[in-house]
């Protein structure tokens, strides 16, 4: 009986971990009719870059249509500020999420920034943590996504 409990617990932990760090295959499935797949990188502290990366995502959606393009924005390093809960662009981030754009937040950066702040970084609910931003980008590129760094 104890063995079954341990087995169930292990399965639950595994499922939780899978849920925490999205897999690339799951993302592709979220846009089955997409003809273009783009990953946008933001790793810069410059606020103009925040606006620019959101503009680019918006322009892709407008040009191809929400169903025909799959866009993911990966934020790491200083660029993670884009996904802070109180970021001035949070309204735009929510709107883009509603059109299917995904936002990935680098867990390594989250950990480092939390240490620098002496408190956990609060991210927008639209951000999904990934183990490492740069790894996430490499994985997506391997699957055919085109990398754009505005």
């Amino acid at each position: 009986m104890k063995r079954i409990h341990r087995l169930l617990l292990s399965v639950a932990i595994a499922l939780f971990a899978m849920g925490s760090f999205q897999t690339a295959s799951a993302d592709k499935e979220s846009k089955p009719f997409a003809e273009k797949r783009v990953v946008l990188q933001i790793s810069d502290n410059n606020p103009f870059k925040q606006t620019l990366v959101l503009n680019v995502a918006n322009n892709l959606i407008k040009h191809y249509g929400a169903d025909k393009v799959d866009v993911e924005i990966v934020a790491f390093g200083p660029g993670l500020r884009l996904l802070f809960a109180e970021n001035a662009n949070k309204g735009r981030i929510k709107s883009l999420t509603d059109t299917g754009v995904r936002f990935s937040a680098c867990q390594n950066t989250i950990t480092a920034m939390s240490k620098a702040l002496d408190e956990p970084v609060k991210l927008t609910s639209n951000a999904v943590p990934v183990s490492a931003g740069v790894v996430r980008i490499i994985d997506l590129v391997d699957q055919g996504y085109q990398l754009v760094k505005p």
């Binding site: 502290n45 410059n46 606020p47 606006t51 500020r81 884009l82 109180e86 970021n87 001035a88 662009n89």
Partner: peptide, 8 residues
């Protein structure tokens, strides 16, 4: 300044 969107 704009929250989390201002330069140093």
């Amino acid at each position: 300044e704009p929250s989390d969107a201002a330069p140093r």
